[in-house]
């Protein structure tokens, strides 16, 4: 992993390498380099399989982090490539020309995080939510509890117990804490 990282570092402005396991590592890359880096990894280094494309909402830094996880079948290891993009103008270049399956991930991200991928096939179609009108629900400023309370009626009588204290009360009612 380290060798590959050093080799890549000569051509791309890579961030720091963090090795999670012997067969899994992550690093950051500027968004301009992503497409060519993925192409290089796919065609030259044998990372032929896009495992997933997902996002994290870093609301404090006002950034979205996109994670592209690619897998090398032969050497059985994964690289996660992180790209940080601005949260206010959430838009990213599509990679559906590298892996057609990416279009599906991008549709999901568009719906759940509101990250746009211009040019990606069927990007504007509903993916899971049908007719969603509110803020994209995976954004952290979307209050899911409040939305749920407004939209769906509660049945009265619902009680929530803290599991630890509740079971303690049930099993050892006399015990002093």
């Amino acid at each position: 992993m380290q060798a590959l990282y050093d080799k890549l570092k000569q051509h791309y402005a890579l961030g720091e390498l963090s090795e999670q396991r012997a067969d899994l590592c992550f690093f950051t890359v500027p968004r301009e380099h992503l497409s060519s880096l993925l192409l290089y990894l796919r065609d030259v280094e044998g990372y032929t399989h896009l495992v997933l494309l997902t996002a994290v909402d870093w609301i404090e830094q006002n950034q979205f982090q996109l994670t592209y996880l690619v897998n090398n079948r032969l050497s059985a290891n994964d690289i996660g490539i992180r790209v940080l993009i601005d949260r206010d103008v959430a838009s990213m270049e599509s990679i559906h020309h590298l892996w057609p399956t990416a279009a599906t991930y991008q549709r999901e991200l568009k719906e759940m995080f509101g990250i746009d991928f211009p040019g990606s096939p069927r990007i504007d179609e509903d993916f899971i939510l049908e007719g969603w009108q509110d803020l994209p629900p995976y954004r952290r400023d979307f209050d899911t509890l409040k939305y749920s309370e407004q939209t769906y009626r509660d049945r009265p009588g619902r009680v929530t117990h803290d599991p630890a204290s509740h079971m303690k009360q049930q099993l050892y009612p006399d015990a002093e804490d």
Binding site: P137, F142, S148, Y152, R153, D154, R158
Partner: peptide, 14 residues
Amino acid sequence: NGGMYWDSYNTIKR
């Protein structure tokens, strides 16, 4: 009453 999805944005409660 929604069960463990009581605060979900996408599942009905009753």
